[in-house]
Structures are given as C-alpha cells and as structure tokens.
Design a protein around this nucleic acid. Structure first.
Length: 575
RNA sequence: GCCUCCGUAGCUCAGGGGAUAGAGCAUCGGUUUCCUAAACCGAGUGCCGUAGGUUCGAAUCCUAUCGGGGGCACCA
C-alpha cells in the first residue's frame, strides 16, 4: 500500500474519532485532502481538510485541525504534526516509513509502482502515427511515435491493457496518385518523354522507387496497358513505403500490435457484409443516416457537429470519412473498452464528427482524441524544413540518424503534447549538461559503476565483457540484504521520498495521458542521486552502512531505469 | 466569423483551487590526493498577457479582452 493511502486511513480514523466523540459535527466523513506541500519546510505531507470543512462544521479551521491532531490514532507513519497558517495540518513522516518504501522497491524491482485498472475500463485501443504510406514519415510523425509509445508504456504500468495500432491509409485517391507518379518516373527513366501527372508526387524518393523497379524488372512494365501498370506500381510503391515505415518505427522502439489496412474495411466476408456496410447499418438502425442530393449522409449534427457529413458521395464514391466510420465501428466490435487516437492539432476540426459516430452507436465517450501540437525543427536557432543533403523535407528517419533514438525520444516527450515543440537538432545532439537525457542517463550509469566497483574482483570485468549481466551481479552482491534503518541522512531520505511518489505519478500520468511528466520525475530523481553521491560516500564506509547505501543506490537505479523505460529511453550501465 | 491550444524568470518550460510561484538552460563565483566533474554547491531575476467575477483562499475556475500557433470540403 502506498504512503498516501496509509496516511488517508490514519486521517480518516482521526476524523471518525473526532466525529464519534462529538467534538466535530459534520453530516458525512470528509476526504482526507492530502497533498504534498511545495515547500519542504511545510512537511512531507499536508492535509487541508480543516480548511475545507470549516464552513459546514461551523468552527475555526485551526480548532478543527487541532481536534484532528488530538484524535490521531497510534501509527508508525507520522513522526510529527504541526498546525500551520490558516489551518494546514503539516505532517512529517518517520524514517521507518521511507525505509519501507525502499524495501518495497528492492522487492518489487521493475514491477514497482504498478497499478491496477478495473475490468471494463482496462482494454484500450491506442492508434497513432498512422502516416500515409505514400511517402516517408516526417518529423511530426516522430513526435506521435514517441508520444504513442510512451503513453502505451505508462498506461500499461498503471494497469491498462493497451493495444497499439497503426492505421494504414492504403485505399483511395492518394494511393492511385502515388502509383501513377512512380509509374510515370519509371517510364521517364526508360527514356519516354512524358510529363509528370497532374497532382503527382514530386519527392525524389518517387524516382528512387522507380529506379528500383528498373533495376529489378527492366522494361517489363513498358508494354503493358496503363491500368495494369498503375495497379502494379501502386502495390510495389506501397509495400516499399510501408516496409520503410515499419523499419523506421521498429528502429525507434515502437512495437505495434496491429497494422490495420483501410482496404480491409471494404472487403466483404462470407456473410456478404463488410465493416463499411455493418457500420452504416448500425447507424441507420438508430436513425442517423439519410439520403439527400443523391449522397448518403450521417446526421452528426444530432450530436453537436456543426454540419452533417457525407459518407457516400453523389457519384457513388466513398468519402474518407466513410473509412473512418467503418474503422471505428470495427474497433468497437473488437471489444475495446476505450479508443484513443493521437492526431496532430491540424486535425482538430475532424474530432467532433468522429465523436458523433460513437454517440450514434450508443457508446458516447468511448473515443478520446489526443490532439498534439506540432514540431518546429531548428538548427542552431534557425528554422529548417529542408534537408541540406536532399533539398527536401527532413524525414523522421534522417532525424533519428543524426540525433539518436534516446535524445529524440526524450526531447519529443519532455513537454506536454498541448505545447508545440521547437526541436533544435544541434541542441539535441549536444552531450553535455544542456541535454537533460544525458543527465538522467549519467545518474544511472554512475550507480552501475558503484555497484561494479563494490563487486568482488573479476565480476565487474565479466559484466563489462558481457559474460554476466548487471542484474546478475547486483543479485549476487546484494543477496544478504541490509539494515535500511541506517539510512538517515537528509540526502538519503530525500531519495526515498522521491521514490515513494513514483506509483502515484504513473497512475496520474496514465490517467491524464501525460507521459511527459516522467521526464520531470526522472530529472528530479537523478538530481537527488547526484546530491546523494556528493554528500554520502558509499564505498569504503562502515560495512553495514555501505551495504545499506548500495541498496539505496540500487533502489534508485531500479526506479530510474523504470522511469526511462516508460519513456522508451535506454538506461545505460556505462557512459 | 466560428472552433481549439498557448501566453509564468533573459531563454525553453513545469505547476491547472492551497502556504513565501518552481525547474532546466544561459550568466557570475566556488568545489576534484577519495565511488565517473556528463557531477555538486552558492548568487540574481517575476504586475503568472490585461480587466472583472466566484471563493476562506485564484497563476490555477468563470466572463470579457489583447497577442501568438493550428483548424474550419460530396480533399485525403
């Protein structure tokens, strides 16, 4: 049980005692109202319950606070209590309660801070990136890749069952244009003097794909009719682009559970229905579908959308929105409790109509759209959009190549998704204090270094050589346990206090879909470790103290590594 | 015009009802016979965009307003 919950119980008991004794008059038991004071001089925890109930209880808040303090039950959690200001109850915890936190970390290891989400809210579909397979991913997609992955990791640690999905827009006009563009380049390479098609794709990667076909197939596709060639090139180009995206994302550490094809929405099953037809039927049955001007409409205005939306055009073609209707219906039918989509802020206008369709199916609120602000790329303060090398948009793959996965992820995640990011490539590449990712990683590496030094001769070398793992070494080294009550130094207590916040941080960050908070936490924890390192020598101290401190260092390592892992950033044992 | 995100230290941003508003960077000064100085310690900076309102209490909630980003198709 976490410290907050334990404290809540204690405060609740005090309130109950005061109520039972008749010294406090309230209709119902108020909440413990615990918070962490910003200023440490106001204690480890504070309750504002006295301020909150002053009015209904018709009493001065300081008097109420005193009553609560007088009725506190016996416990080994609270060291001292102080009534401050208008009626704050400031609580200082015993060292014992912090030692229990560390013991918990050491026991639970990477499971520390794991939460539980009740059945019925747990199974979540998270769809993100979903870049069109008609070109390489740009830097903005990278932000969604980092954000989606970290969100999934954080939510999983909080107890959700997250299913990560990538929606491939492999149907529709853009795909055809893409295929035609490559086919056109192909013919040009083979000497035909033809112009690029109207609205064709201009990037040099189109030529590269075409050249690839020339190298492989020669002039095999020159003599065939246009439709065959277009279809063939569309598939070739599509699979090449998709493969490229999969490789880039895998290299970035993303693992999607599903790559969902838009085309599949239009394929009829043995029963003669498709996701498209089923989704329309489900809407129609509730009365939200109508025909007008020869088109088929969704009455989204019934749910607050500013206008109704066309699903099937007058000419019989499906709109892009139709695909989304079918896609979301399909997701629902796969049994998810909740759907989350991560979109760029430029899709803001599209949200309402998508939420409306879930209303229409009787699942209001089941879809949550996370809108993230965009990424502005800089190099030494100057805006860059184009790559110097290719003269085209800098791709996500190029960015990772230049900056590295860890720094890219960390910087992409280090601020709220409501905030646009100014990503400076040169700053991201710096390996000094101005780059927070290395600050955090360095703390981890420092801890590992201490642990290696503490190991018997030969064993550390085995780790460096790779014949045993860091985990095995630590397991052996700390097998005896230690007397954690020796950890009483201010810097030691501060570290344990920070560790005690981890579980709550994870569950809050998961609830608020705010993975970026983990970056702040990691930096705070790293800073506290560096302070501890400076103030408290570990090796060569009194044997028992050394053991206790090694355990504290290892506990810090565990939590630090977990925090980094939730961000998808590596925790190096050496730097 | 409508919708939405944002406005907090020199810069980049946290904090989103609670106490004297924080962090990193940058700037200046200090610390190494000793576990990684990629570190630590010290110093300064704020009409929390503006004006009203709600509240015991507002940077935080509400309204208005100013400024900036993004969006408002039978396009995808």
């Amino acid at each position: 049980m976490q410290i907050r919950e334990q404290l809540e119980t204690v405060i609740n008991d005090a309130l109950k005692n005061a109520l039972a004794g008749g010294s406090l008059n309230l209709e119902e038991l108020p909440e413990a109202a615990l918070e962490r004071p910003r200023d440490e001089s106001n204690g480890d925890w504070a309750s504002t319950v006295a301020l909150r109930v002053a009015k209904p209880a018709k009493k001065n808040p300081r008097e109420i606070a005193q009553l609560i303090v007088d009725h506190l039950p016996e416990n080994d959690l609270i060291d001292s209590v102080e009534i401050a200001g208008p009626g704050f109850i400031n609580i200082r915890l015993t060292p014992v309660s912090y030692h229990a936190v560390l013991a918990d970390v050491l026991k639970q290891k990477d499971q520390y801070g794991k939460g539980e989400i009740p059945e019925g809210m747990r199974y979540v579909n998270l769809e993100y990136v979903s870049a069109n397979p008609t070109g390489p991913m740009h830097v903005g997609h990278g932000r969604w890749a980092a954000l989606g992955d970290a969100t999934a990791r954080v939510m999983r640690h909080a107890g959700y069952d997250v299913y990560e999905e990538f929606y491939i827009n492999d149907a529709g006009v853009q795909m055809d244009l893409f295929g035609k563009s490559v086919a056109c380049r192909y013919l040009q390479i083979l000497g035909q003097d033809i112009p690029m098609i109207e609205n064709g794709y201009g990037g040099s990667y189109i030529k590269d794909i075409a050249q690839g076909v020339v190298d492989r197939d020669g002039d095999k596709w020159v003599a065939v009719d246009d439709d065959t060639r277009t279809a063939e090139f569309r598939e070739i180009a599509y699979s090449e682009m998709l493969q490229l995206m999969k490789e880039t994302l895998a290299g970035f550490g993303n693992k999607f559970d599903c790559w969902f094809s838009e085309r599949s929405l239009y394929i009829e099953g043995p029963d003669g229905t498709s996701p498209v037809s089923r989704s329309i039927k489900a809407m129609d049955e509730k009365g939200y579908v109508y025909k007008e001007d020869g088109a088929m409409w969704f009455r989204s205005t019934a749910f607050g959308d500013e206008k109704d939306r066309v699903m099937i055009k007058e000419n019989g073609e499906f709109t892009y929105f139709m695909s989304d209707v079918a896609y979301h219906y399909d997701k629902l039918s796969r049994g998810f409790d909740h759907l989350i989509n991560i979109w760029g802020a430029d899709h803001h206008g599209y949200v309402k109509r998508c939420e409306a369709m879930l209303d229409a199916w009787g699942r209001p609120g089941a879809l949550e759209v996370m809108l993230g602000q965009l990424v502005n790329l800089y190099r030494e303060g100057e805006v860059v959009r184009m790559s110097k090398r290719t003269g085209e948009m800098i791709t996500f793959a190029e960015l990772i190549d230049e900056v590295g996965v860890d720094a890219t992820r960390y910087l992409m995640l280090s601020r709220s998704s409501d905030q646009p990011i100014d990503f400076d490539i040169e700053v991201a590449k710096k390996k000094d204090a101005s780059n927070p990712v290395y600050y955090v990683q360095y703390a981890h590496a420092r801890i590992c270094s201490i642990l290696r030094k503490a190991a018997p001769a030969g064993e550390a070398e085995a780790v460096v050589a790779g014949t045993t793992s860091m985990d095995e070494l630590i397991e052996k080294l700390l097998a005896d346990g230690a007397d954690l009550s020796l950890l009483t130094h201010e810097s030691e207590i501060a570290l344990m206090r920070k560790m005690s916040e981890f579980g709550e941080l994870v569950s809050d960050a998961a609830r608020d879909r705010a993975a970026f908070r983990l970056t702040h936490y990691a930096q705070d924890l790293a800073a506290l470790f560096h302070q501890f390192y400076t103030n408290c020598h570990v090796l060569g101290e009194d044997k028992e103290l050394e053991k206790a401190r090694l355990n504290l260092a290892n506990g810090t390592r565990i939590v630090l590594a977990r925090a980094l892992d939730l961000l998808g950033v590596s925790a190096p044992a050496q730097m």
